[in-house]
Nucleic acid binder design. Sequence first.
DNA 1: TATCTGTTATAATTGTTGTATAACAGATAG
DNA 2: CTATCTGTTATACAACAATTATAACAGATA
Lengths: 134, 134
Amino acid sequence: MLIQIDFASDLPIYRQLRDQIVIGLATGQLEAGEELPSVRRLAADLGINLHTVHKAYQQLRDEGFLVLDRRSGAVMAKNIPDQPEFQNWLSRQLEPLVAEAICRKMSTNDLQALVRTLDQSMRQLKKDGEMQNE
Amino acid sequence: MLIQIDFASDLPIYRQLRDQIVIGLATGQLEAGEELPSVRRLAADLGINLHTVHKAYQQLRDEGFLVLDRRSGAVMAKNIPDQPEFQNWLSRQLEPLVAEAICRKMSTNDLQALVRTLDQSMRQLKKDGEMQNE
DNA sequence: TATCTGTTATAATTGTTGTATAACAGATAG
DNA sequence: CTATCTGTTATACAACAATTATAACAGATA
């Protein structure tokens, strides 16, 4: 899976890494149980420090997406644990974005369509990937 | 309008301020053309530094939400300028959130419902506020 | 004149981010 | 056994962002 770091972004590197891995999982570019490169390997490939990769891996582990094992390395979780607060957390994240959309006179339909398009395109990519594995 | 700062949040103070003002505008707690407290006044009320308020006001001005005038102070913009890149920007903001929702097995319907609820409740609040002014 | 407005400058502090170097414990391949 | 790989921890340092503090300025206003 291709990972691209934007060193001019306002988002920290470890956050870009974390986000892209989550997106990779949602789109089927990464599968449950799949091995990730070691912190040193990925750091070398991306030209960054191993601690930066480690920080991203730690966050993904704390979020339940990644299992870290001293022997086998980093493996995408097979069962992502339920986080009962997730919908509330997501709601808080979305609130300022939806508010800004309203302020900028975006219609309810356009907003819904935008979310639907994102959601559907990711789910379709995942589906396609699973098709290929059969 | 009530503003609450969480000093333990991972979000910077000026960002919380900015977000709450945008939410206030979307929900009708703030109206176009309404005056905001001066940087010193608001800073004193919230127990923070005037520069922190100034930074939030500056960002809101850069985003087109606020008009700053040396004499009249800070006034919510009457006409928020179009930002042609807004939908693309919003899409990039939403991408990792939608991805995480998919990873956490949230259904398309639940995600749509969550966004719709946020959108509708804000629009309803704004409508109610406008009703009262007639 | 005194007081209010946003704005600018400067400095100090604190926390975050990223890098560098080094080491450790455990697993594994030769 | 040795060499090499894994995540993990520790320490130090540099760069930057966020926040505070103090002070001053220009312009408007009561």
